[in-house]
Design a protein around this nucleic acid. Sequence first.
RNA 1: GGAGAGGUGGCCGAGUGGUCGAAGGCGCACGCUUGGAAAGCGUGUAGGCAAGCAAUUGUCUCCAGGGUUCGAAUCCCUGUCUCUCCGCCA
Length: 426
Amino acid sequence: MFDIKLIRNEAQAFDTALGRRGLEPQSANLLTLDNKRRQTVAELNEAQEKRNAVSKQIGQAKAQGDEVKAQELMAQVSELKAQVQQGEESEREQTLALNDILATLPNILSAEVPDGDNENDNVEIARFGEPKTFKFKAKEHFILGEDLGEMDFETAAKIAGSRFVVLKGQTARLERALGQYMLDFQTQENGFTEVVPPLLLRSEALFGTGQLPKFADDAFETTDGRWLLPTSEVPLTNLVRETMLNEKELPLRFSALTPCFRSEAGSAGRDTAGMIRQHQFNKVEMVAITTPQNSQAEHERMLNSAKMVLENLELPYRVMLLCSGDTGYSMTKTYDLEVWLPGQNAYREISSVSLAGDWQARRMNARYRDENGKPQFVHTLNGSGLAVGRALVAVIENYQQEDGSIAIPKILQPYMGGQKIINKIS
RNA sequence: GGAGAGGUGGCCGAGUGGUCGAAGGCGCACGCUUGGAAAGCGUGUAGGCAAGCAAUUGUCUCCAGGGUUCGAAUCCCUGUCUCUCCGCCA
């Protein structure tokens, strides 16, 4: 959501910024609506001022028992009433029309974001580890999982449909171990406060973070008008909606391990095999609420919090700075972490760490008082730390052995009761 | 699910049609006092929008949205949330 004042002052820059998102210039249309609205407001205010003044006199006349004068004044003011009502109605309509457009415009990209059309134009900015080489042909995770008898897509399809999986036994435990470890790491080492949020959410919350109104098709709506969370970014960021924070309490850092639900409406045919793209997956999310001055540094800090998970799991990865065409609608700047998957012989996204600036804060009305006591919108950030389902894929593929067993990363062994390897149990 | 009571500023709380954007208190800020602090005293202390270089002025906002009225924190309707009792329930 944008401040119309910003558009008023920097119409050209605004249109240029939207142009980077491939959008037509909007400012002319918006400013026409804005001018009309301001005119209406000015006229309305004037009518209200007159009405209020006379109404006050009526009150005084009544107080003095001067009924005649009161009647006279009431007659005088009656036509103003219609004017005020009409003005209020116009203002309502015009504000709605303006906000409808403002609510569907994407965030402005940071200057550091490179131009580009799609993920092929993302820029690699760092790399950790080397893709592992195997003496045998590396398999994909779903082959390994099915051979172990602990990853069952067929049964999942029977009870839930496509894009679901049933995990069992040691693999199920490994999934849980990954989630526990990641959440512990973010809360114990990186200063995030653990949160257990609601998984069903109101429309307002999804509007706040930007999933609504434009991306309703990507999430599941319940029969009572709520939404299954597509990511815990939504509840965690909305924790501060409609609040006035003190600068002293910032930054706030939240983390949660939750299932996420996505309809994957637009991705028919993509990643249909295996666990890469599911309707339901677990994710450890990080959210930070901070000041405009500190948000850039917070972004780097959060990126580091995500990177360290992969490094501690000893998984090779690279850091990508997303280009203009691939950066999410709500974000000014996004880093993706891509983990190496030997089975796919490719780097695949496992974390996305983004800075939203004040774009979400405006939609949520989340503010803080600065040192001068003036209310300001906070800056919000979110990142995966990490996607658990994809981390499971990465561990299985990177730690696979020739005989189909899976070694367990050192850092996870305490979470697996000391177990060091997953073998087929016949 | 049924019945009832409520939602007022950063917080608590008064206020049932007019001079109420709102008493009082707490908190906070500044000043006085003090060797320094506490206490005490004094002053100040909501946000949005519009106009203005500014001081300022107007307007809107007492959960949200509509409505009644010359005039609404106060009356009516709808929604929402909280609390109490009953029912159901992991």
